[in-house]
Design a protein around this nucleic acid. Structure first.
Lengths: 236, 236
DNA sequence: GTCTATAGTCGGATAGAC
DNA sequence: GTCTATCCGACTATAGAC
């Protein structure tokens, strides 16, 4: 039950690193992965360099080759690590919402759970210092699809958008899978990124120097207002 | 009154290209700029290459050097060109909204103009085929601030967010410059990017193959619903 | 497992002819 | 104004010793 888990992560050439027994070099592998997560968070796939990563990890270039079979293998390993860590961070809210959808199909229950999910996501994306780089990684791969797009779409974006859309459909009284609900889900999730991908703009606009707990609370209340408004009918 | 205007765009070294008279090479310069806009739209500053740009423009590398004093100069010239073209595209809606703010300070007028501004922006960002690359350029520079960040923030993001925030504040009955209104403005503008930066996710989620007039209409109606909800009070 | 040394490629920029 | 030729640095990956 380690950070990365024991199972299926080696590429063909690097298989030997996972032979049964003590696996002496696992710590080196882990250090490389950690450094790479940071590096690929700071810069895109093309711009980040294996030299820089190897140096920061205190190993030489061929070592990286040995464990991950090259730059692309390392990049994809990072994507898988992000998926796994993201799951651990948001499991609670996600399963609670999923159960609620089945247990109590009223609009107000769905609204409460939508708020809970969005709060969890916002806290993860904006609040957690370490998640900042991961979010950048995911956002970049979304905009300029690369070697890890499929991994991230199938494990993060796809399920996330769909479960959000399900909650919104329930609030609006629409059938599951309604296109309008999906659009609203995309708009809502995308607005979250104002304070993540768009951090430099947001800081400058708000006159903040960082997004701490107080700032996060203001953002959350803005998001709540948006969610409160979903599906309300009003005159005029 | 040409595409780029006559005035102050040369760097020190490239000054000679703008000496009085016929300026024989202006057409070459223009061609390079056009190609560069496309190239820097498709790829980031680091990833796009001057070789590729020069070749696509049908000139050699030193020519690029001659007109723009290197890669960075070309990049900033692109940013300035985008600002200028964006202004031409949205002048109408922007000035109308600005006047309305002064003429008629009711919430409903502000709401109508907010819708008009957002529609104009969405049509520009999502609808216009040529703006696609420009939007990518701007979005990238927002996330990873580079040589052109200041140009784009001061001329695009800053004014855009502020005028949106002003309209929202008016709808909400808050004083101009209220932080809550600014947050709502950032959230609203950021949600627009779901169908721009997030195009690959959006297409896949919606099952669309492209965003044509019909799809754009659905997005606009989602945005309208969001705007309609701003500032409404409702009993739970 | 991890290293040194190096191959092979490609990037931006410059010198200097025309 | 625009070119050809070239420099030099940085990158990914491999060969092969330890």
């Amino acid at each position: 039950m380690d950070e990365t888990g024991p199972a299926p992560r080696k590429t063909a050439k690097a298989r030997s690193a996972a032979t049964a027994g003590y696996r002496k070099g696992d710590e080196t592998r882990q250090r490389l992965l950690e450094v790479a997560l940071k590096a690929f968070g700071d810069a895109s796939y093309k711009v980040a360099t294996t030299r820089q990563i190897a140096e920061a990890a205190g190993v030489s270039l061929p070592t990286l080759q040995y464990y991950f079979d090259g730059k692309e293998g390392l990049y994809c390993a990072c994507a898988e690590a992000i998926v796994e860590r993201y799951r651990r961070h948001t499991r609670t809210a996600a399963t609670a919402a999923a159960e609620a959808v089945h247990a109590d199909r009223t609009a107000e229950t769905a609204r409460l759970h939508l708020k809970a999910v969005i709060h969890a996501l916002a806290e993860f994306l904006v609040g957690s210092r370490e998640a900042e780089g991961w979010a950048q990684f995911v956002a970049r791969e979304m905009r300029d699809p690369g070697p890890a797009f499929t991994i991230l779409y199938e494990n993060l974006w796809g399920p996330g958008v769909l479960s959000t859309a399900r909650l919104i459909a329930q609030i609006l009284g629409l059938p599951e899978g309604d296109p309008g609900a999906r659009i609203r889900a995309l708009l809502l999730l995308s607005s979250l990124l104002a304070f993540q991908s768009g951090r430099s703009i947001a800081l400058r606009t708000m006159g903040w120097s960082a997004i701490g707990p107080d700032e996060l609370a203001m953002v959350l209340s803005g998001l709540d207002a948006e969610i409160d408004a979903v599906g309300r009918n009003f005159a005029s």
